[in-house]
Computed example of a mutant assay.
Amino acid sequence: MDIRQLARGTVEWDRLERVFRTLAERYDRTVVRVEFLEADNWLSTPCVVDDEWFVKIVTRQNALVHALLTTGRNVGAITSGTGGFFDRFETPLGMVEHEYEATKRMREIGLNAPRPIEAFEVNGLGVLVLEYLPEFETLEELPDEVVRELAPELFEMLATLHEHGLAHGDLRAENILRCRGELYFIDATRVLEDRVAETTAYDLASAMAVLEPRIGARETVDAAAEYYGSSDLLSAREFLEFVRFRPDHEFDTTKLRSEIEKVADLDRG
């Protein structure tokens, strides 16, 4: 069994049935049709219901794994010269309520995100219901030339998020979707609200880490520099090593650092 499957665990069928019966009752359906999704995901059991809703089912084990990952991320943040800024969840309900609110806030400030329907609890399980986006592609599935075209849009979306005092906290290729020709953010995690400078720098470093292997360091930094100043880029530079040690990012840290420093030198000149 894959380590992520082991960490995620499985949900007993009778508990899943209770979730789906509850969904049918809440949405006035006699029955619902469920398609479970294969997902590289540690933190929920994802499925599509009636081709209309994307549903995440979160267990206590998922919440525990999130807490362990949060501890590791905070240790990594400390090694980058700042205190930890990731926040944990105490319950499965807390996890889905956060994602519901985070998705709602992104839409309120004009960013693309799946429409949040509701978050609730069934028999100790957290249940998040979102709009289902049909025929989407993740950023990692797109050709390099398309990623190059979308890079400025990605940084514009991220800058809008940060201008409103928000952060994503888990920006990676799987959490950036293209649907109907536009980019969408999903799966924002919880970060401390009073650490805006650090979370902004971390998000920016993560975005550059996503793009560098696809379009190169120079084009990545040039696209970022359209929406972020040299001081922001230099702050993000301090998180590159931390981001590089995460298993879902593979990029050339040295080249990114060099291009960031070139932009900063030009600004100072």
Rank of each mutant, 00 (worst) to 15 (best):
G9Y: 10
G9H: 07
V11L: 11
W13M: 07
R21C: 00
L23W: 11
R29W: 02
T30P: 00
R33H: 12
E38C: 01
N41K: 05
S44M: 06
V49C: 02
D50L: 03
D51Q: 15
E52V: 03
K56D: 00
I57M: 03
V58S: 00
T59Q: 07
A63Y: 03
L64A: 07
H66N: 13
H66V: 03
A67V: 02
A67K: 14
L68I: 10
L68R: 12
L68K: 11
V75K: 14
A77V: 02
I78Q: 15
G84R: 14
F85D: 05
F86A: 06
F89H: 15
E90T: 11
T91P: 01
G94H: 12
H98R: 14
H98T: 10
A102Q: 05
K104S: 10
K104A: 11
R105G: 02
R105H: 05
E108I: 00
E108P: 00
I109Q: 09
N112I: 04
N112M: 12
R115G: 00
R115W: 03
I117C: 08
I117W: 08
A119S: 08
F120R: 03
F120P: 01
V122H: 07
V122K: 09
G124A: 09
L125W: 04
V129Y: 01
L130W: 03
Y132F: 15
T138W: 09
T138C: 11
L139H: 12
E140S: 04
L142C: 11
P143M: 12
P143N: 11
D144H: 11
V146K: 13
V147L: 10
E149I: 12
A151Y: 07
E153W: 08
E156Q: 10
E156L: 06
L158S: 06
T160P: 03
L166S: 06
L166R: 12
L166P: 00
A167H: 10
D170P: 01
L171Y: 06
R172Y: 14
E174A: 11
N175M: 03
N175H: 14
N175G: 02
I176V: 15
R178L: 10
R178G: 00
R180E: 11
R180A: 10
G181K: 10
L183Q: 11
I186C: 04
T189A: 13
V191K: 14
V191E: 12
V191M: 15
L192R: 15
L192P: 03
L192M: 14
D194F: 08
A197E: 15
A197M: 13
A197F: 13
E198G: 11
T199S: 14
T200Q: 14
Y202R: 15
L211H: 13
L211E: 06
E212H: 08
P213V: 08
G216Q: 08
A217V: 04
T220W: 04
A223W: 09
A225Q: 11
G229C: 09
D232L: 08
L233Y: 07
R237V: 01
E238W: 10
L240K: 09
E241H: 13
D248C: 04
T254C: 04
L256P: 01
R257T: 05
R257I: 04
R257G: 05
S258T: 05
I260S: 14
V263D: 02
A264N: 09
D265F: 02
D265T: 03
